[in-house]
Amino acid sequence: MTLLVLLFAGLVPASLCSICCPPEQWEAYQFISRVDSNGGYEGLQAVSYDAVSRRYAVFGNYTEGQYADFKVIYDYAAGVEYRITPGSRSCETFAITEKFKDTCVPDGAAQMGPFTFGLGTTTLDTRGYSYSTKNKGVTTHVTMVVQHDRCVPVIINTITASSTGDSLVSIGYNNMNPGIRDVTVFSPPAYCGKGGKNTFQKPQQRFNVVHF
């Protein structure tokens, strides 16, 4: 069964060249909608993001074709990714070779807006940005809306075009809180083992992931 985890669509490897960045540690819920040539789906997942230690954890209940609990831990400092299915107490480990991806607005993004969400005196002041990337034949166009004073993501839309098909992913962020309430969210369960090289699985499609 292929887990479908969509993480911070379209964002880029951590860099000092950024227009703005949100707090380095935060937690939130993401409502995700994806449309591609195979159809589409929607899902809700919780995210714990830690740029200080270069890691993030994702919790959700949507897998391809049906609902089932899952957890994914990306530990970039250790170079290990854990794919966990708590219900069956199963765990796979994979080597991470790419750089940590932050949630900053990258330098060179074109500004859109400003935009205001809400009505009256309780409005949210935001800015929109757009940029495109191309890597290994895959073109990605990202549109971001972030809180103006703290650069916290509000909405991220990503259009991806490749030889295998096109897709549109929309992610809405809600109930965001600064900091990490419980750092054990980044600790894999005992049945995952130590994540040594001998436990790594052979490379395969990575959950249809659209990374940060």
Rank of each mutant, 00 (worst) to 15 (best):
L7H: 09
R127P: 03
S15L: 10
V47G: 06
E64W: 12
F31V: 06
C21N: 06
S37V: 05
E81A: 11
S88I: 08
T158H: 01
Q45I: 05
Y129W: 13
F8T: 03
P188S: 07
K136D: 08
I84Q: 09
F100C: 07
D149S: 15
R150P: 01
L44K: 12
I32L: 05
L4W: 07
G39R: 09
A190F: 09
K194Q: 13
R54H: 15
G108V: 01
E81M: 14
Y76W: 14
L11G: 00
G120M: 06
H141V: 00
S15P: 09
G60F: 04
I171F: 02
Y29D: 12
F8D: 11
L7P: 10
V146C: 06
N38V: 03
A190P: 05
N174H: 14
P23S: 11
L3P: 08
F186Q: 07
G60I: 04
Y131M: 00
A51P: 07
V35L: 15
C151K: 03
S18E: 12
S37H: 13
R55T: 02
G39W: 02
P188R: 05
T133E: 00
G65D: 04
N135D: 08
Y129F: 15
P178L: 02
S163M: 11
W26V: 01
L3F: 14
S90Q: 14
E92Q: 09
I19S: 03
V80L: 09
Y76V: 04
F31E: 13
Y131H: 00
A95W: 05
G165M: 05
P114H: 03
Y29I: 06
F59H: 11
S88A: 15
Y29K: 12
V12Y: 02
E64L: 14
S88C: 09
T97F: 13
D50W: 09
E81K: 13
E42K: 13
V146Y: 02
S163Q: 14
Q66V: 01
D50T: 07
V80Q: 02
Y29G: 12
S167I: 02
N175E: 07
G65V: 07
S53G: 15
L119T: 15
Q30M: 10
N157V: 11
V105Q: 04
Y29V: 06
T121N: 15
R83T: 12
T116L: 04
G195N: 05
T143C: 00
N208L: 14
G195V: 02
V80E: 06
D107I: 10
Q45N: 08
F59V: 04
V210P: 07
V12I: 13
A77Q: 15
